[in-house]
Design a protein around this nucleic acid. Structure first.
Length: 555
RNA sequence: GCGCCUGUAGCUCAGCUGGAUAGAGCAACGGACUUCUAAUCCGUAGGCCACAGGUUCGAAUCCUGUCAGGCGCGCCA
């Protein structure tokens, strides 16, 4: 629709120039969009305003000239100039009817596009250390990363979702130590549990499991060995639990990448050698420093400490280099907002590898404040007391949790109220949208019941010309917007765009539903309306699926 | 001190690649179930878009500064 209007404007400009009414045939970037008020038509363009400096004429005059040379199609009712120079198009209902056919024909691909031109994008998210269960913050990151991946894929990008397992280094060793100490306690020894060890209850469970597996003799093992055994076992179990929790949350990955593998394969050493040969590192105070400052970082960073151990940054450099070697055009990392200080550092490393800055993108997800009935839930990581993602999914359900996490821009902090997420009421937006799907399923079932011979799974609309009610046209216009919203969401990597759209569509449907009966005595009208609500059902389903939320047949 | 994010209705937030009269949900008030699901709808009320300058035909949106809140500034991960 918008393309057609744009072409009409362009053609009219050409004719106006030929007729000597406009000076230049140059067409600047114009917008075609739906105005806020019905009195301003169905679609509107700012062409005349953005052309004012080119044509050296008042916008109003330009608009008049364009309209005078326009060949309106018959589905256009009228065209007028308004306000500071908008050209407003008033459309007849017939202009919108083809949209219903498009939705029904495209079905689960309605909204999909080749916008991304198959650009290879990797989205890396969650990537939590396997040292404890996932918590609320990870949940938001998981929901965002997964949705961004889905949306990009739907918009024509070639997407791979990845989880980076920090299964190497000090924190895994600390995990092993924590288990080892708890194990000693189980055996009746009094121990001074170290301050910097993990204190959650799950550590005790793991200690018990290790003891069961290894037997009582294990206590006599050389502690260094024993801690290694504990670490490997615990990390393996915790990672398995993380996978399960994510799966229950509807999140799956195309790839799980182990940090340890960077060491085992010699990849990390290779990267360090490469940096040396490129003269991008230097020694100072016994440590090896990467000249990230040359690429915009505030200061240079250590990659090998004076004790000979590599930093986390070093493995991240190797990891990211490996990502680009795998052929990704763009790499997106989803991080918690507390890691923002790390962006410039890694961006510098990426640029030092010869990649462009735009090929590395970080989505910073702001903090989640967990509430219960409006009051903050007390959590202390230090004491190992926190509400886990699993707790939340168990309490409010996957759909409510995901919808809540994706309801706001990740640029803003999020208040997540468990009581609200649990409520089956209008406070809870997930039901508002899912209810549309369930209601339509009910209508289709009833139609099938009344007319068993009717196949309600239309691939094409029936008697669409019967759709003339204002609420019907509004609903179809909203359906028509879905593809552009998907594109916008993909271009900005903001899943909440889809959330907002779904709320708008749901609102348009509920308003329509309360005003009109779908199944009436008029068979043609009924078929037309069934086509329409079926199209709505498909779009709701497509949108929810991008966010990883289910579309129930009944509620 | 420096950096990132945020500041819009009583509350939680959309709108931010500049456009016409700034939107939604909740809370408040008044209405609508003999109907395909009232987990819904309709209406009323609610605003110096933090503040001050600037850019231009036009600013919630862009620029500068100020104020307020959150989060970071390790040879930790």
């Amino acid at each position: 629709m918008k393309h057609i209007i744009k072409n009409m404007v362009t053609a009219a400009v050409r004719k106006a120039v030929d007729a000597g009414m406009l000076v230049s045939g140059q067409i600047p970037e114009m917008e075609i969009e739906a105005p806020k008020h019905h009195s301003q038509g169905d679609l509107s363009t700012n062409f005349a305003m953005v052309s004012a400096s080119i044509q050296k004429m008042a916008p109003g005059k330009i608009a008049e000239a364009v309209i005078a040379h326009m060949d309106p199609e018959d589905w256009i009712e009228k065209i007028e100039v308004a306000g500071p120079g908008f050209i407003n198009f008033f459309l007849r209902p017939a202009a919108w009817h083809p949209v219903v056919d498009q939705v029904l024909a495209a079905d689960d691909r309605y909204g999909a596009s080749d916008f991304g031109k198959n650009e290879r994008v990797q989205v890396e998210f969650v990537s939590a250390n396997p040292t404890g269960p996932l918590h609320v913050g990870h949940g938001r990151g998981a929901a965002v990363g997964d949705a961004v991946g889905n949306i990009l894929r739907f918009a024509g990008f070639s997407v791979s979702k990845e989880y980076y397992i920090n299964d190497s280094g000090r924190q895994i060793r600390t995990l092993g130590t924590s288990v080892w100490f708890r194990l000693q306690e189980l055996a009746g020894h009094t121990v001074d549990f170290p301050e910097d060890c993990y204190k959650g209850d799950y550590i005790q469970d793991l200690a018990r499991q290790v003891l069961d597996r290894e037997g009582p003799d294990f206590l006599n093992r050389n502690p260094d060995d024993a801690i290694g055994v504990c670490a490997r076992y615990a990390a393996g179990r915790i990672l398995a639990q993380i996978r399960r929790d994510l799966a229950d949350f509807g999140v799956t990955f195309d790839h799980w990448f182990s940090e340890q593998s960077l060491y085992d394969s010699g990849r990390l050493q290779q990267t360090l050698d490469h940096l040396k040969s490129q003269n991008q590192v230097y020694e100072k105070d016994g440590a090896l420093w990467f000249k990230t400052q040359d690429f915009g970082d505030e200061k240079n960073r250590v990659v090998v400490r004076s004790n000979g151990l590599t930093t986390y940054f070093a493995s991240d450099i190797a990891y990211h280099q490996e990502k680009y070697e795998r052929g990704f055009d763009r790499v997106i990392d989803v991080w918690g907002a507390d890691h923002h200080g790390y962006i410039n550092r890694l961006a510098a490393a990426v640029m030092a590898m010869g990649m462009k800055r735009e090929q590395f993108q970080v989505i910073l997800v702001q903090l989640v404040t967990l509430l219960r009935g409006g009051k903050p839930v007390q959590m202390s990581t230090r004491a190992g007391e926190f509400v886990t993602l699993k707790d939340i999914v168990d309490e409010v359900g996957k759909d409510a949790a995901r919808f809540m996490f994706l309801s706001r821009s990740y640029d803003s902090g999020l208040d997540f109220d468990l009581e609200v997420a649990k409520q089956k009421s209008s406070d809870n937006p997930v039901y508002y949208v899912q209810y549309v799907h369930a209601r339509i399923s009910g209508i289709l079932a009833k139609a099938k019941d009344l007319h068993p011979e009717m196949d309600v799974d239309f691939k094409q609309g029936r008697h669409l010309s019967k759709l003339t009610a204002q609420e019907e046209i509004q609903l179809i216009k909203t359906l028509a917007e879905f593809p552009e919203q998907v594109e916008k969401s993909a271009a900005t990597c903001h899943p909440h765009v889809i959330f907002t759209y779904l709320m708008t569509l749901a609102s348009a449907f509920h308003a329509y539903y309360n005003r009109h009966k779908v199944i009436t005595g008029d068979m043609e009208l009924t078929l037309a309306r069934l086509s329409l609500v079926l199209a709505v059902k498909k779009v709701i389903r497509n949108g929810l699926s991008l966010l990883g939320v289910s579309a129930p047949e009944r509620m």
